[in-house]
Each structure stands twice: as C-alpha cells, then as structure tokens.
Simulated scan of single mutants.
Amino acid sequence: MANNHDYNTPEQGAQDWHVPLNDNFDQLDVDVELRDVAEERESYEPKDGAKFLETDTGIVYEGDGSSWNPILAMGTFDEDGTLQLDGFEGAVNITSVTFDTDDMTRSVGNGARAIHHGAVVFADSTNTKFLSKGPDEVRSQMPIYAPAFNTTSARAAKTAIEPVDPESALAGVESLEINSWTFKNADTGRHIGPMAEDFQESFDLDGDDGSIATVDADGVAFAAIQGLAARVEDHRDQQAAEEDRIEALEAENQTLRDRLTSLEERLASLEGRHKPSTKADD
C-alpha cells in the first residue's frame, strides 16, 4: 500500500492475510470516491464518510451511514460561459468550482452561480439565478444582518487622495431624486433612497449603475454635511453683519432724533423771544 495511506500491511509469514486486507477494503470504500450517474446513487451503500460523485450532474454526496447528503457540486460551463449546476437542490447547497488557474469560487443557495475567478455568491431558497458579475467579489441576494460593518478606511490603505468640495457634494445631494420603493424580487419591505444611476451621474464615481457602495454613500453624506455646515456658518456671519448694520443704523437714528429734538427746543426758544407783545400802549 502507498505510504501516505493508513492501510494495514500483513506481516511476512502471517497466516491471516484476509483480516487486514478486509480492513483495507473497508477503508477503501471511504477513501476512494464512488462515481456513477445520479439514478444509480441509491444502489451504493452510504458508508460514513464515503463520497459519491454523480457523473451526470457534478454533485458530490457524503454518506453518514444511512443516507447520501449533498456537500459539493463541481460546475460545468456551457457555450456562453454560464455555470451549470443542474439538479443541485440539497440541504447544504454549497458549490465549488476550480478554474484552470486554481482560483476557487464559492456559491451558496439554489440559484447561486459564481462564474468569475475568486467570486463568492450567496443566494436565497428560490430558483432565481443569482450570478457573480466580476472576479474577487462577494454578492448576496439576501439582506445581511450584523452588529456592524467595518469598512476599510485607513489612510495607509488609500492612494490618489484628492480633496472634495463640500458645496459641490451638497449641490449633488440636492439634485438627487429621493424616492421610496420596494425590490421586485425580494420581500424586504419598503426602502428609501436615490437610484444608483442618478447617484453615479451626480458624483462621477467609478461604481456600476446598479449599486451604490456604502463607503461612497457615507462619504457623500459627510461631505454634504460639511457643505451644509459651511452654508449655516455663512448665514450666521451674514446675520451677524446685518445685526451690526441694523445696530449702527439705530444708533445713527437715535443721534438724528436727539439732534432733531435739540433743534426743536432751540427753535421754540427763538420763537418765544421774538414773539410780538400784545400789551396795549399807554
């Protein structure tokens, strides 16, 4: 037996070679993958740990001592490059495909299809096909729930850093049409937000027209808040300047009122001095 397998080798001169050999045959049933068409799978004993490959579907099953359970599906590609995993509807629904470059893809779910190098795709329980759209990406057909999503944002991880004009970001947000809507193929309730196409056009980013990266949405929100804060500060400065102008005008008006009062008093005094006497001459 090969050195890298734990098989029993009868000792020289042993009389009971059949015992270790039978043990070896039992081990071979687990170590060596069984291969046959799908309709013949139940004719094989599902020994615990044994593997069975359906040659017509590419699905791999593992025995648990009483039944065969799907654990892996080796995909095949048709002429247009679409990954085919027909018949794989087991409880686990994990698919794995090895490309020529030995890059691995992972697909989970009934309609999941990872057709690009290094892609990972999570699909729901429906039969709707959900495909990867590029290499080295993760896509999910389902909502994802987690305590927090930590976006890589360290300065050391970035390059080609350029400043953003907060006023332009605010203007872009103001120009967006914000709507409430529901997804066509997912019952996740109503949502609110802009359309991805409008978002990409407003901010000239490199994302696709079908999605909005959360890091971009957060960045736009931060920049727009700064733009709004700058507007508020400008308004406060203008208001303060206006209040100072009004205060100066009021002081000037008070001075003019005081001068007018003084002039009126002087005029009254002059009129009193030059008022003709009405006493009759003796």
Rank of each mutant, 00 (worst) to 15 (best):
L83R: 13
A196K: 10
Y44K: 13
A112D: 01
R245E: 15
R190M: 08
S277K: 07
A240L: 02
N3V: 04
P163N: 14
W181C: 08
T126L: 08
P70Y: 05
V138A: 02
G109A: 05
E40T: 07
T95E: 01
K133H: 09
Q238K: 15
S180R: 10
I192Y: 05
Q226K: 00
R190V: 07
T152M: 15
G227P: 11
H117T: 00
V164I: 15
P166S: 04
A112R: 00
P276G: 00
T126H: 05
S180W: 03
V120Q: 07
D56F: 14
W181K: 08
A123M: 08
Y61K: 08
R266A: 15
L176Y: 04
Q15C: 01
N93F: 02
S153H: 03
R236Q: 15
R236H: 13
P194S: 10
Y145P: 00
D136N: 12
A50T: 05
I161D: 04
L21E: 09
S180F: 05
V92T: 08
D23I: 13
V138P: 00
R190N: 10
L28K: 03
N22P: 02
A157I: 01
N3C: 04
G172W: 04
G111M: 07
N4L: 10
D282G: 05
N253H: 00
I225L: 12
I71L: 00
Q141Y: 09
T76E: 09
T57E: 03
E42F: 01
D124Y: 08
N24Q: 07
E271V: 06
R273F: 05
N69A: 10
A251T: 11
H235R: 09
W68V: 04
V30S: 03
E162Y: 07
S202C: 03
L267K: 14
M104T: 10
W17H: 07
G109T: 09
N8P: 00
H18C: 05
S96M: 12
A50W: 04
F25S: 03
V60R: 00
T159S: 02
N253Q: 06
Y7F: 14
L176A: 03
T278V: 09
G58F: 00
T82H: 07
E79W: 06
E162F: 07
G109C: 07
P194H: 08
V97N: 07
N22Q: 12
P163S: 15
V60E: 10
F199A: 08
V215E: 12
D204R: 13
R155K: 08
A2C: 06
D36L: 06
F52E: 01
L85I: 13
P70W: 06
A73T: 14
D26W: 00
I94A: 09
L28S: 02
T101Q: 04
A230R: 05
R245S: 11
T278Q: 03
N127S: 14
A91G: 11
A38L: 13
Q254S: 06
E33R: 11
T255P: 02
S67E: 15
N253G: 06
D198F: 13
Y61F: 13
V92Q: 06
N3E: 06
P70D: 08
E243N: 07
E264K: 01
K279S: 10
T128W: 03
T152F: 14
F222Y: 11
A229R: 13
D237S: 07
E197D: 03
R41F: 01
